[in-house]
Write a protein that binds this DNA or RNA. Sequence first.
DNA 1: CGTAGAGTTGATTGCGTTCAACTTCAGTGG
DNA 2: CCACTGAAGTTGAACGCAATCAACTCTACG
Lengths: 225, 225
Amino acid sequence: MDSKTLFDACNYCPYASDCCANKGSLKALTKRVVTFDKGDTLIQQGEQYDGFYVMCQGSAKATLKEGASSERILEFYHPRDLIGLSGFSNAHYQESVKVMAYTKVLKIEKDDFEQALHASPVLASEMLSVISKRLVKRQHHYSAINTMEAETRLIHFLYEEYSGTYPEQHTFELSMTRLDIANYLGIAVETLSRLMKRLSNKGIIETNHRTIAFRDPADKVLFDA
Amino acid sequence: MDSKTLFDACNYCPYASDCCANKGSLKALTKRVVTFDKGDTLIQQGEQYDGFYVMCQGSAKATLKEGASSERILEFYHPRDLIGLSGFSNAHYQESVKVMAYTKVLKIEKDDFEQALHASPVLASEMLSVISKRLVKRQHHYSAINTMEAETRLIHFLYEEYSGTYPEQHTFELSMTRLDIANYLGIAVETLSRLMKRLSNKGIIETNHRTIAFRDPADKVLFDA
DNA sequence: CGTAGAGTTGATTGCGTTCAACTTCAGTGG
DNA sequence: CCACTGAAGTTGAACGCAATCAACTCTACG
């Protein structure tokens, strides 16, 4: 595993030039390639923290379970995303992460990371920046969820998924089920279905199952209004 | 100012024994006491990041402004809370912080902090933990906002405010207006007013303007269900 | 080909919003 | 000290968005 495999991983990766795993202090860290199949659990909520991950390929979702209530989806992961940062909080992962398709990740072990932290203070700044950005992003997402009505929220989400694709194309593929999307957006599946139809009727998007296209690229910016 | 004033600040502070500013690596950091009056702006969204704060006394709210939409309240701050962590993300504060009453804070300058980061790698771990905890807390809050109905959300909020008081008493004082609370909870002021009345009628709380009391302390745990 | 999960459609209900009128409270100046 | 003013908070009536329940259709997969 490790260095040689890692070299291959980043070398053949289309995102390599734009991935934190391949830049700055994180580049020098020891990493291990791990793969998961659809349905696998990458992280189990409550488990002991033993490292975090950078996603190279595939898709995953983070879910939170509180008390007796059903699971809630916190975010979706795409290539280049960091996974498992909640482990820093109290040495236990605070959410579960499930893989939705064949997925390849780089694992950065807890011990390796802490050692690197001692060796390079710049790494600390970088990680603080990364995790703070995550906080801000989450902030905006949830602020949106509460302020905006469902239709705007959906456009917002679609644009997020769209802009995560690489290279950017007008047509993109959703990797999650409507049920997952509805859960993430905090609406009912039926409502989601109706909204998709309405957006389609309005001519904002074209839908074909999980394949989505923005009719007019300018519409993507709608959510800024 | 500084060291002597600081000594006084923590020395006369009722929260000192339970405050991160007075424990671990943060204790050794250089800090400066700054005070603000009701209505003052502690941090302006978009401003250059130049340090973060620990609140000693008073109360404040963080607001986020996106596009043309009106401001949204992200969180309230109480003594012992850290303020301004969003500055780590890209060297600019990502939200405004406004003071709601006479407030005393300790400021930790950016330069001092970065210097300390080089000197003590443990500080890095501690800060990562702190900020990750914030992320997790925010996560739970917003998960709650979407899943729970308004009444449960309100109880949740009241309990949060209650448990922040020190020493814990059955009766506690809200430091924010109903408008702020409604904004924070993502509901209309009118709805909030009606809910408060309903909770009061149900015998769960007693209200007198901004003074609140839980009838039966066991009820505080309601939100766990 | 058959079954289970994913997704859609329709009818109904209800929670929370909105609009409007009003009361209470805190601060200000005569 | 009291009258005035504007913000904070309450109450009522009507509306509307999204949830829920129920019956389907479609799709993937063994």
